[in-house]
Amino acid sequence: MTENRLATVLDRKVPFNDLSIQWQQIAVDVRQDFEMIFEQSAFCLGPFVERFEADIAQYLGVRHAIGVNSGTSALHLAALAKGIGPGDEVIVPAHSFIATLWGVLYAGATPVFCDVEPTTGNLDVAAAERCVTAATKAIIPVHLYGQSANMKAVMELAQRFGLAVIEDAAQAIGATWQQRYLGSIGDLGCFSFYPGKNLGAAGEAGLIVTNDDDVAKQVRSLRNHGQSERYVHQIVGYNCRMDGLQGAVLRRKLPRLAAWTASRRKLAERYRQKLLETPLVLPSVQYGEHVWHLFVVRTPERDRLRAALAERRIETGLHYPIALHKQPCLNHLPSAKLSFPSAEAWAAECLSLPLFTGMTEDQVDYVADAIRALC
């Protein structure tokens, strides 16, 4: 698109996300569910959460799916359920959202950063292996932006050193590796249903999945004040229950997830084709089936390009502009003093383009044309 043609469409706006499109598809059903929830006072856990747990366990092919109040809580309770605590080390990638390591810190353990792959931004397993010590108890592969980490290498590393594997699948609901859904491969899988996720709640919600009966029992107790039965508290627990309202919303959205994911894949491929001849580093699909929670490009001119797109009313995001070992609250960690070149490069160059359920091909074309004119 020429600059003159761009000038004729500057009154347009492309949002980074538009959640109202999803709401329009589920509004009638959810309003009926909400009436039932209020009539039954089924606000905390209850039948709507139980139905969602059953549905998503079947979808993911796991024995147990336990709804919680956020993806952060999922990671916290997963760490506790695997007995992770003071004196233990847990390997985490240096490029991710900070919630990846909150659960490790909440459990009293020490996150150990490792670098990420230059091509995917996911955990570099060779780098992770160099981090293993006698104190290492677990590894948290993050399926960043909706693509699997190298789970073959992760599982081989975990088996070799006797490590627990906690999958951070917060951005990867519906993504697969070797025909298995992410989250179902390690000891536990953790999901976020923050509203902007591919499967988003109407507020905060999360999920823990596992095929281990004992771990599932432990997680269910941990999320509900440590209760084994009402008013019998066998362990120190937490209030991490999923709301009935969130269970209802998620259950109505789940049957639509496959179609929404197919649409994301189609739009992502359109971006890839239209941006091939630009100097941008485009997302690289290396492992499994990507669900494109985010479409993240890289360029040393990130800030200039972002500002120019904003002038054209194109919203973008930064996921994530500060590597974890550079975060001020984490500078006390021993590994925070090290250098992780790939993670630092991702942080300096990443730019997330608009991609959401209900986005049109015309909107993708408008964004891509603007980028081509600016690069």
Rank of each mutant, 00 (worst) to 15 (best):
L276I: 15
G83D: 13
F295M: 09
P321C: 09
V291F: 05
V104G: 09
Q25K: 15
Y231M: 14
T120D: 07
Q363M: 06
E167S: 06
G247D: 10
E156C: 14
A248V: 05
I314S: 00
H325Y: 12
D187G: 02
E167M: 08
G317S: 07
L305E: 10
V125H: 02
D365S: 13
E344G: 01
T110D: 07
Q327D: 13
A57I: 06
P334V: 06
V215E: 04
P354R: 03
S228F: 00
A7Q: 14
G121N: 07
L157N: 09
S96N: 01
A42L: 03
Q159K: 15
D55V: 10
Q179I: 01
H293L: 14
I98L: 08
Q178I: 05
S335C: 02
S335I: 05
T136W: 05
I91Q: 02
L45K: 14
T261P: 12
A158L: 04
A268G: 10
A368V: 11
L257S: 05
A135L: 11
V285Y: 05
L374G: 13
V219K: 05
D11S: 10
S70Y: 00
E277K: 04
W23R: 14
Y271Q: 06
S221I: 01
S70W: 12
L163W: 03
K337W: 04
Q327I: 05
F16M: 14
T110H: 09
P118L: 12
L105V: 13
I56M: 02
R272F: 01
R5K: 14
V364P: 12
I140S: 00
T210W: 01
Q22S: 02
A308S: 01
V92I: 07
K274A: 08
L199Q: 12
G71V: 06
G244T: 05
E89N: 10
A79T: 12
V209N: 03
N211F: 05
V154F: 07
L105Q: 09
S339A: 12
R180W: 13
K217D: 14
D55H: 11
Y271S: 01
P15Q: 01
G203Y: 10
I26R: 01
A258S: 15
